[in-house]
Amino acid sequence: MFQETPIFSRLVAERGDIPAQVRGEADRIHRDLARVMPWISASGLPAGPAQDRTRW
């Protein structure tokens, strides 16, 4: 994603690889949501007819 540059390398050394940490957390949240809300498709739109889903 990012080109290796001296400033980026220095920031990673000082602060950690924040973009990689954010991607990891986003992936974890996505997996958790897919497990507890299987009726949500990958596009974020409800999968299947509305009458098949539980209404809150």
Score class of each variant (00 low, 15 high):
residue 26 A to C: 12
residue 29 I to C: 06
residue 55 R to C: 02
residue 13 A to Y: 04
residue 52 D to N: 11
residue 24 G to R: 12
residue 54 T to P: 04
residue 5 T to P: 03
residue 49 P to C: 00
residue 21 Q to W: 05
residue 21 Q to A: 15
residue 50 A to G: 01
residue 53 R to N: 04
residue 44 G to E: 00
residue 36 V to S: 01
residue 25 E to M: 13
residue 37 M to G: 02
residue 8 F to C: 10
residue 37 M to H: 10
residue 16 G to T: 08
residue 9 S to I: 09
residue 51 Q to Y: 06
residue 7 I to Y: 06
residue 15 R to T: 06
residue 54 T to H: 05
residue 19 P to G: 03
residue 44 G to P: 03
residue 36 V to M: 03
residue 7 I to H: 05
residue 34 A to M: 09
residue 22 V to D: 06
residue 7 I to R: 11
residue 22 V to C: 05
residue 45 L to K: 13
residue 41 S to M: 03
residue 42 A to Q: 07
residue 5 T to W: 02
residue 33 L to D: 02
residue 6 P to K: 08
residue 10 R to V: 03
residue 33 L to E: 04
residue 56 W to F: 15
residue 28 R to E: 12
residue 34 A to L: 02
residue 15 R to F: 15
residue 39 W to I: 03
residue 22 V to H: 10
residue 36 V to Y: 09
residue 11 L to S: 07
residue 33 L to N: 04
residue 1 M to Q: 14
residue 30 H to T: 11
residue 13 A to I: 02
residue 18 I to E: 09
residue 8 F to M: 14
residue 14 E to P: 00
residue 31 R to D: 11
residue 49 P to A: 13
residue 33 L to A: 06
residue 17 D to G: 02
residue 23 R to N: 12
residue 4 E to K: 13
residue 32 D to E: 13
residue 6 P to T: 06
residue 31 R to S: 10
residue 24 G to S: 11
residue 15 R to Y: 15
residue 53 R to W: 09
residue 44 G to F: 01
residue 22 V to W: 10
residue 1 M to D: 11
residue 29 I to S: 07
residue 16 G to Q: 09
residue 19 P to F: 07
residue 10 R to L: 14
residue 41 S to T: 09
residue 10 R to I: 01
residue 49 P to R: 09
residue 40 I to M: 08
residue 34 A to F: 00
residue 4 E to V: 13
residue 39 W to K: 08
residue 33 L to C: 05
residue 18 I to H: 07
residue 21 Q to D: 12
residue 7 I to K: 08
residue 39 W to Y: 13
residue 21 Q to G: 15
residue 9 S to K: 14
residue 21 Q to C: 09
residue 10 R to P: 01
residue 26 A to R: 14
residue 14 E to D: 15
residue 55 R to K: 13
residue 29 I to G: 01
residue 7 I to P: 02
residue 36 V to D: 05
residue 41 S to N: 11
residue 3 Q to P: 08
